[in-house]
């Protein structure tokens, strides 16, 4: 299965980005092969409103079935919930470490959005 991470860099050694909708890019990692795909998020990172919604849409379109982030805004959370994508919470760490934790099944499920939305 494929897992998406907001990323500060472009490979698995980079850190998880603390933001979701306004992260610079996402890494979508295949849990079987450990290969990954990079989705640039530049258009959304600067959006006045709805950045989380569009980022969620991009991650879903890339085929992710789970997403790992420090925070989730209410609208992005709504999109994931409707699409049946698992939302998992993690602290900032290298993405390769988070993949290990994911495989061990120790990343907690997010119960709801923890960030207020931004209107514009």
């Amino acid at each position: 299965m494929k897992i998406a991470f907001p990323a500060t860099g472009t490979d698995l050694s980079c850190l998880l980005d603390g933001r979701f909708g306004r992260a610079p890019r996402f890494l979508v990692v295949d849990s079987e092969t450990n290969s990954y795909q990079t989705i640039e998020n530049d258009g959304n990172a600067d959006a006045s409103q709805g950045a989380g919604i569009q980022s969620a849409q991009a991650v879903i379109a890339a085929g992710a079935t789970a997403v790992v982030s420090v925070h989730f805004g209410p609208k992005a959370f709504q999109v994931f919930e409707k699409a049946g994508i698992k939302t998992l919470q993690a602290d900032i760490a290298p993405i390769s470490d988070l993949m290990d934790k994911f495989r061990q099944g120790v990343l907690p499920r997010m119960q709801g959005p923890d960030k207020a939305g931004h209107a514009g």
């Binding site: 709805g50 919604i53 699409a83 049946g84």
Partner: peptide, 24 residues
């Protein structure tokens, strides 16, 4: 529609289809 909207008020949620955010 989602790529047209300048205000990010629409999103595709995979197999669950199109979502609308009226407040945006």
């Amino acid at each position: 529609c989602t790529s047209f909207c300048q205000y990010n008020a629409l999103a595709l949620a995979g197999s669950a289809g199109l979502m609308v955010f009226p407040e945006l």
